[in-house]
Nucleic acid binder design. Sequence first.
DNA 1: TTGCTTATTGGTCGCACACTCAATAGCATC
DNA 2: GATGCTATTGAGTGTGCGACCAATAAGCAA
Lengths: 233, 233
Amino acid sequence: MSSSVQRKRIRKDPAARRAEIVAAAAAVALAEGLECVTLRRIAEELAVRPGLISHYFPSAEDLVAEAFGSAATGELDRLLPAEHGELDRPLPAEHAVPDRPLPAERAALTPTGRLARFLARTSGEEYDAISRLWINARHLSRYRSVLRDRVARQEAAWRGRLEGVIRDGVEAGEFATEDPTAVAVQLLVVLDGLGVHANTATPERPAAVLRMPLTTAERELGLRPGTLDEAAG
Amino acid sequence: MSSSVQRKRIRKDPAARRAEIVAAAAAVALAEGLECVTLRRIAEELAVRPGLISHYFPSAEDLVAEAFGSAATGELDRLLPAEHGELDRPLPAEHAVPDRPLPAERAALTPTGRLARFLARTSGEEYDAISRLWINARHLSRYRSVLRDRVARQEAAWRGRLEGVIRDGVEAGEFATEDPTAVAVQLLVVLDGLGVHANTATPERPAAVLRMPLTTAERELGLRPGTLDEAAG
DNA sequence: TTGCTTATTGGTCGCACACTCAATAGCATC
DNA sequence: GATGCTATTGAGTGTGCGACCAATAAGCAA
């Protein structure tokens, strides 16, 4: 029998195959965790033999790091899209930023609107998957040095993106702060702190706790309380 | 040769042996991570055969959960010792709290002093190991349900202990808050948020970020800024 | 001292993992 | 249609894991 197994080989362009592998690995990482990114698992996902994955990633650790980097970059772009022309990475690029002009309605958002939308999105249940990924990566970083470096780069990317929005807001006169970097880091600390519970079904948390990101942002940026709720619609 | 291997069997009281196993597992969990708590590893630690560990813990998952519970309880007692007679766990006891009277100098500390000391200790580098353990447990909870329950119980224990100090302070007129629970959770969120970096060597962080726990506590408890620094000595 | 309970051993099984490498076959090029 | 490059396979290695179980011996009680 052995009916449904694919018999015919499909020979692809190395670059395309590699991208395909990374995409599959990123999807598995996001949905099931970085420890599920194994040669066998990704090979099965793509209906190829494990040896092929080894061929593109001689060390499995590199694939895991790449999967995390790809997934995290994708999620950041979804949560807080970069404005056209925005320079948000002082470090070597993690990924090529698509250089096409962004849709008009995005470019039209004010810094307050962008920040409000980001904070709204990081409160939803959809954000749990991303929280899980970060916890996963931060823990696995303990043992895998390649991943550790990737995590550091992603941290810088997320902080840089958020910092950019804050700077835009200061420039536009919407925000008031002396140290955009410190505010960005403080916000990320709060979001990380709230996100660690993503794997453990936490009972209802006090409203003051759920509002921490908004409260922190409004306090540190000199916004009237409630501003960000209203801006989020 | 096979010189140094232990030949003679040592037969111990089951309760004592079990305690020994848990202690060894907790030490390994704290120092090397929960995934290093394996039958073979703990057996080697105690110079016994792996089968013996299986005998006491038919499911390895139970041992891992027990190791985390033991380590976390021990660290909480070290960071924020329970006052004599303090009732800090509404849930079934995670561990028997030693009922002996505490040293005089500890019992003499005011709530402000206890809180200040706790926050000082959670800032030191010694706290990194505990942060690592929490990240580890929170991530592994994704896959291990027994551990997940233990994490929930420990969260409750830590929150309860902190909440107790806050209530004492309110009662003593040192703190002012309407909702001690919310304050306790907010503090833990900030500490968790700062702790997630324990595995990734983070560059210097802005002073405002490092002071977040103190700032949060002082703000939420109606303390004059600087109070907790001074109380910590 | 003898005997009995049971804590402890030693060995085995099956599984999943990363990694290696010679053999094979797709496909672009001629 | 034939040829050559190389992407892809298939098979095998070694490691570490949890789980299982019959045999053994430690140490207490009779």
